[in-house]
Every structure is written in C-alpha cells, then in structure tokens.
C-alpha cells in the first residue's frame, strides 16, 4: 500500500523548490570544483593575490559560464519535455524523441549556411542568428508533427513516436544534404553545432539565454494548473474552464523557444527532457505546479553533472555531453516504453 499523497499546497511547493535549489547549488559547486584547469572552489572563493597563470580567470571565464549554460540548457530542455508531456498526456514526449530538436537543428544548420550563425570571430556576441532559426525550426517541426500524428482529433502514442522517429530521420537526411552542399569550412561549423556540446561562451550569451529561458519557464509555470486539467484530455480541460487552444499555442511557442535556444547553443542533447520529469513525478507526484519549477531545477542539475563528466573523464580530451545524456536516456526510454505499455497513459 502506497502512502497517501496529500494534495499540493503552497508550502509543499516551497519545500520542493527549496530542496531542488539546494541540489542545483550543490551540482553547480561540484561543476565548479573541478575541470581541465587547475583551479577549484578554493581558488574561486579565496582568490590569491595576483593571477599570473590565469587559474582564476580560467575558472571565472571558462568554467563558470559553461556551468551556468549547462544549467540553463538542461533546465530548458527538461521543462520543454515536461510541458510537451502534459499536452500530449504522454511521458515519452521529449523534445528529442518528438523530433522537435531535429527541427531546431535544421534551423540551426540553415543559419550557419546563410552565414548568420557564425562561430566565426564573433565569439563574444550574445545573440546569434542560430537562435532565431532554431526556434523557428522547432516550432515548425512541432506543428507539423502534431498535425500528422493527430488522427480523428486524438493522438495515439505510437503514431506520435513513429512520426517523431520519421521526422528525426528526415531531418537527419536533410542535414546530410545541407552538409553536402556546404563548403568545407561551413561543414566544420555544422558538425560541431550539432554535436551536443555545452560551449563556454561569454557572459553576454549566458545573460541572453538566462532571460529567454527563465521568462519562458516562468510563463509556462503560470499555466501549471491548466496542465493538470489538460491531463483529462482537451475536452475534459475545456469543460473545466481551460482555454485549451491558448494553452496549446503558448506551450508550442514557448516549448519550441526553449528547445530552439538550447539546440542553437548546445546542439543535440537528447533524452534529458524524458528522464528528469519522469524521476520527479515518481518522487514529487504529477502536479505541474510542482513539476515545472522542479523540472527546471532538476534538469539544470542533471546537465551540470553530465557536463562535468563530459569535460573531465578523458582529460585533456572532452566528450560531447550529448553522448552522456544519450547513454543514460536511451536505455531509460526503452525501459519506459516497456513498463508503461500496459498502463492507460498512452491512450
């Protein structure tokens, strides 16, 4: 017999957020504590006089922005996963699995080809054209996938997964095509922009992403109660007074924005939006007022730690962080697919 879960209260939410904030803080400290450079927390907190060998500067300008970016990107992809799942009533709806990331990557590659998404000399610029294009690519993919997967007004999970898989294959092929018409130097940019790698950018980019991502997450959080009602289906939610079309539209736009921003900066980091919300639901329950903020914090922690692994296990080399999230997330996806098939969640 499971212990009875009390309905969510403001105090409960506060506790959840406090605990996950603490987890995120610990993850960030862990992320800052080690890396390719020699500095650690001690050098960060108690700066020695002078910084002749740049240890502190490396910490502050390479490691710190990268850890912050990992947190933002992890949070963005996880919240996108959580709200897509709410909308589709399906725990497998991750931006990567759905093909939304694939759409974003097409946008990102097109921006590189159009010459407005350079990793060129503009290292310090916060904004680049890839963000906009990736957002549009994600939104286009999502609308297309929803249209195709909806049969007679309802969406079967298998149609959806199949559509996502096929869209991913299609976008993969399209990217191969774009690569083959790209010049050699563009090819390099494209390959690396898709690799699933958290870059170390200037604080300008960190700030732009932070504003965009936090605003989108906050906005999605404000309609958290609507997502609860949406689990009763679009009809059920309407009968409870939810303006379903508006919630859907906002979710599509903001979820695509989150995915697009993440993909434009870090390429394809898969499955994180699948793993983290599921774990959180098991521990905290399915209420989206809890799930959305905690997904941000939990996803941020997850990617900070995954990136910590990616950048330290084969020093002086690095692994793309997408490799690590896929190694964790792929089997997890199959496990979910297997164990959840008997439930009614997929109807």
């Amino acid at each position: 017999m499971r212990t009875a879960r009390k309905p969510l209260t403001a105090a409960g939410l506060l506790w959840g957020v406090v605990i996950l904030t603490a987890v995120l803080a610990c993850s960030i400290l862990a992320g800052l504590s080690t890396g390719g450079g020699e500095g650690g927390l001690r050098e960060l907190l108690f700066p020695a006089a002078g910084d002749g060998d740049g240890t502190r500067q490396i910490l502050l300008q390479v490691r710190l922005p990268r850890v912050l970016l990992a947190a933002l990107i992890g949070g963005a992809l996880t919240v996108a996963g959580a709200v897509f799942q709410a909308l589709l009533r399906n725990p497998l709806a991750d931006p990567f699995v759905l093909g939304v990331s694939g759409g974003a990557s097409i946008g990102s590659v097109l921006a590189v080809l159009a010459g407005i998404g350079g990793t060129g000399a503009g290292m310090a610029f916060g904004l680049d054209g890839r963000m906009l294009f990736a957002f549009l690519g994600a939104l286009g993919a999502l609308i297309l996938i929803e249209k195709i997967a909806t049969v007679d007004g309802s969406m079967s999970v298998y149609t959806l997964l199949l559509t996502g898989a096929i869209f991913n294959a299609f976008s993969g092929a399209l990217i191969y095509f774009l690569q083959s018409i790209a010049s050699l130097e563009q090819l390099h940019d494209i390959v690396f922009s898709l690799m699933g790698h958290v870059p170390s950018t200037g604080f300008g980019t960190v700030a732009v992403l932070a504003i965009g991502i936090l605003a989108a997450v906050l906005y999605l959080f404000l309609q958290a109660r609507d997502y609860n009602a949406m689990t009763l289906g679009e009809e059920g939610a309407t009968q409870l007074g939810v303006d379903v079309e508006r919630v859907k539209r906002r979710t599509f736009v903001l979820g695509s924005l989150l995915t697009g921003l993440a993909v434009s900066v870090a390429g394809l980091v898969g499955f994180i939006g699948l793993v983290v919300p599921h774990m959180l639901r098991l521990v905290l329950g399915p209420d989206h007022r809890m799930l959305i903020p905690c997904s941000f914090l939990g996803g941020a922690s997850f990617l900070v730690l995954a990136d910590l692994l990616a950048r330290t296990v084969i020093l002086p080399g690095e692994l793309p962080v997408g490799v690590i999230t896929a190694l964790v997330g792929g089997p997890f996806f199959l496990y979910l697919l297997r164990t959840r098939r008997t439930g009614h969640e997929f109807r």
């Binding site: 879960r5 309905p7 709410a86 009533r89 399906n90 725990p91 609860n228 949406m230 689990t231 009763l232 289906g233 009809e235 059920g236 639901r281 329950g285 399915p286 209420d287 009614h344 969640e345 109807r347």
Partner: peptide, 12 residues
Amino acid sequence: PVFGFSFNALEV
C-alpha cells in the same frame, strides 16, 4: 473520461 499520469482520485 480520459486521464494522464499518476494523479490520484482526490487530485482528479
């Protein structure tokens, strides 16, 4: 009626 995720009866 349609449901999703692990909401319990009281929450629904």
